[in-house]
Amino acid sequence: MTTLKSESVDIAGPTDVVILRQKVRAWSIELKFSLVDQTKMITASSELARNTLDHGGGGRCLMEMVSNGARSGLRLTFEDHGPGIPDIDLALKDGYSTGNGMGLGLSGSKRLVNEFQIASKVGEGTRICVVRWK
């Protein structure tokens, strides 16, 4: 997979979530995503950025326009140095929440993207990588 362009966005406050959404929207349009695909990717980025902020205590998102030869897509990697997730399977369940949300952030955004990878270590942080292909 080759990276065509990339940008790192800090997620330190609620307005950063809005800024990231707008950047993801602009890149999705540049990649000529359909309106539904744009909406799905922006929504997934919003959910994951909020997780980074609320559960990870802030972090950053690496945005990458990628190509695997045949297709191009948008890859987002969210990283925080928060408390980490002790039980990832449980965290990926619909309706499971440690905060006061609906517990749809992780499980829901997984359904909105084509690829979803999560790695987390208790006490070190969490890294979530998602890709949506054109």
Partner: peptide
Amino acid sequence: MQPAVAITLVELGM
């Protein structure tokens, strides 16, 4: 509500 928003919302699980 825009159609794309409705599609995404239901897929999200809401």
